[in-house]
Simulated assay, not measured.
Amino acid sequence: MKKIFHAAAAAAVLAAATSCEHKDLCYDHSDAVDVEVVFDWCNAPDASPESMSLYLFPAGGEALRYEFTDCRGGTIRVPVGSYEALCLNSDTENVTYRNAECRETFEVTTRTADLLSGLSVLGVLSDGVPRVDGTESERVILPPDMLWSDYAESVELKPTAGTPTVTLSPEMSICRYTVEIRNAANLKYVSGISGSLSSMAESLYPGVGCDATCKTGATIPFDAAVSADKSTVTGELFAFGCPSARKTHTLTVYAVLSDESKWYYTYDVTDQIHSAPDRRDVHIVLDGLPLPKPIVNGGGFQPDVDDWQSVNVDIEM
C-alpha cells in the first residue's frame, strides 16, 4: 500500500513579515530538520530487534542511512527534501545487501554456505555430494536471520513549527519452514544427519514488498535432529520464500551411519510448500525415511563408504 507522509511548512507568519530583521529570518531557512521516527510494531507485536536501520532515498541523490538502537525509533536530523523510505532490523549476521542505491532495487540476500555444514564434525566434505537434478548450479546460501521491514514511497520533509513524524510499521519479511519426517527406520545407527531445501528464493526486495522475491533459486541447508525415541527426524530453517518464477522444491536428507556409509534421500515437497495455509509458517510433514541397518561382521552387501547412496522417496498424495 502506498504510504505518504507530509511534514507541512508552517511559516505563514514569517512570510508576512516586512521588517529587515524578520526578512533576514525568512531567508535564513535551515537546510535540515529534526524528524521523529516511529517504528510501530502493530504488524509484529512480538518483535523486539536490538537495532533498526532507516534508509532515506532522495531523488537523484545518495541514500542516507540512520541507525537506531531503540526498536521504537528516535529523533534524527535530515536534510529537507523529498524521499522514499525503507526500514529493516539490522541485528543480523547472515544477511547482506546488494544494489542499495534505490528503494526498489534494494536487495537482501545471505552469504554462501557449505551444503553439509551440519556434518562437518564428522569430517564429511561437500565436494562431490550429489545434488538434485536441475539444482546443481544453484548457490548454496545460509538461511536468513529473522527480518522485519516496511517502506514508504513518499516522505516530504520541510521546515515546520514542530517536529515532523515519520511512522513505519515493520512486518515479518521471511518465511519459517519446519520439517517432520515420521516413521524413520534405523535412526539409532545414525552418526550424523542434515538436510537442505532446494529452489528457494535467493533474495528479497523489501522496498517493494515482503513477497517481492527474485527469480533465482538457491539451496538452503539446515541442521536436522533425531527424536529421543529414534523414530522421527525434525528440522527448521528460515528462507525468503519461493522465487517469483515457480520452481520445484526438493527436500534432501543426508545421513551418515555408524559404518560410515553415506545416504542421500530426496522428497518432492513442492505441493506442501505452495498449498500451505500460512505461506510464512510452513510445516512439511513426510512419512518414512528408509535408512538401512549397517552391515556388520562382513555379512551382506556393504556399499563403498566414500560414495553417496541415492534414494528417491515417493510421497503418497
Rank of each mutant, 00 (worst) to 15 (best):
T75F: 13
S48F: 13
E260N: 15
V313W: 13
L204E: 01
T250C: 14
S199N: 10
S51I: 09
I273T: 08
I295V: 15
K3M: 04
S90M: 02
F238G: 02
T112W: 04
P221L: 02
E138H: 08
R131H: 09
S227L: 11
L289V: 03
T110P: 00
C175L: 00
V108A: 00
E21L: 13
W263S: 14
S90Q: 03
H22L: 10
V253E: 11
P159A: 09
E101Y: 14
I174E: 03
P144D: 00
T105R: 01
P79C: 12
D259P: 03
P290K: 03
S227G: 05
I193G: 13
V108T: 00
P277K: 11
F57S: 05
D31R: 10
G209V: 00
S137E: 09
I181V: 12
D150E: 07
N183D: 08
S244I: 04
R77G: 03
N43M: 09
G217M: 00
Y205Q: 12
G128H: 04
A9I: 06
T165L: 06
R246W: 12
P277E: 12
L56P: 01
E138S: 02
W308C: 08
G73F: 07
G81H: 03
L64Q: 14
I315N: 12
Q309L: 11
L257A: 01
Q272V: 04
D287Q: 02
L142N: 01
T69E: 14
